[in-house]
Simulated assay, not measured.
Amino acid sequence: MKVILFIVALLPFLRLFSFAFLDKLGANPVEFITRNTGDWTLYLLCITLAMTPLRKLTQWHWLIRLRRMLGLFAFFYALLHFTTFLWFDHGFDVAEMWKDVLKRPFITVGFIAFVLLLPLAVTSTNSMIKRLGGKRWQWLHRLIYLIAPLGVLHYFWMKAGKHDFSQPVLFGLIVAALLIVRLFWRWQSSRMPLTGRQ
């Protein structure tokens, strides 16, 4: 399953690469790459968040073993998204990029989400889990509950100039639903000891 997932998750990148090679990126190649990598970052973040609820609902416990790879691919596409911004928009001029980050709120939010993804990617190995300890590692990786809404907000603000809110709203509803399900289960589990004593 991991091999299949790896191949499937890599397909959008291979498609993008082939489009670039065949000169099929359209009239605005930078916008095409930026949009495509941003979309796939959000797709994979949503799928990563969906793994635990899906496992609980289906009892397919093997799903949880795919979550780390999905998270790493979400980071991979976020890295491509950020690199496109840094390279094509600013020619790797970090000072100019930083001015843009501070000036434009939607870029600020997207940059914060990307920075928060970095420690999750760095600590994704088994050795880092052992070094941090399971509990601290879990607390750190709960940053995804903040990263996903920030990613949606970044997308929403970016689309605000074009008055096209359909996709950002859809992403927002999906992320909200996945987070509400988690909150409900946590509230339910916190009440169980109390119910048992009655």
Score class of each variant (00 low, 15 high):
1 M>H: 08
1 M>I: 11
6 F>D: 00
7 I>G: 00
8 V>G: 00
12 P>E: 01
17 F>A: 13
17 F>E: 10
18 S>H: 14
25 L>G: 07
25 L>V: 05
26 G>T: 00
26 G>Y: 04
29 P>L: 03
33 I>V: 15
33 I>G: 08
36 N>S: 10
38 G>M: 01
43 Y>H: 13
44 L>P: 02
52 T>W: 06
54 L>E: 07
56 K>R: 14
57 L>R: 15
58 T>H: 13
62 W>Q: 10
62 W>T: 12
67 R>H: 13
70 L>W: 03
73 F>Q: 07
75 F>C: 06
76 F>I: 13
77 Y>R: 04
79 L>S: 11
79 L>A: 12
81 H>K: 03
81 H>I: 10
87 W>A: 08
87 W>V: 14
97 M>L: 07
100 D>L: 00
101 V>S: 02
103 K>E: 04
104 R>S: 06
108 T>M: 01
109 V>I: 14
111 F>K: 03
116 L>Q: 09
118 L>N: 06
118 L>S: 07
125 T>Y: 09
133 G>T: 10
141 H>V: 10
146 L>R: 00
148 A>F: 05
156 F>I: 04
160 A>F: 10
160 A>V: 13
161 G>K: 11
163 H>A: 10
164 D>N: 15
164 D>R: 14
166 S>E: 15
173 L>T: 15
177 A>D: 08
177 A>L: 09
182 R>V: 09
183 L>Q: 14
185 W>M: 12
189 S>A: 10
190 S>H: 11
191 R>L: 07
198 Q>T: 06
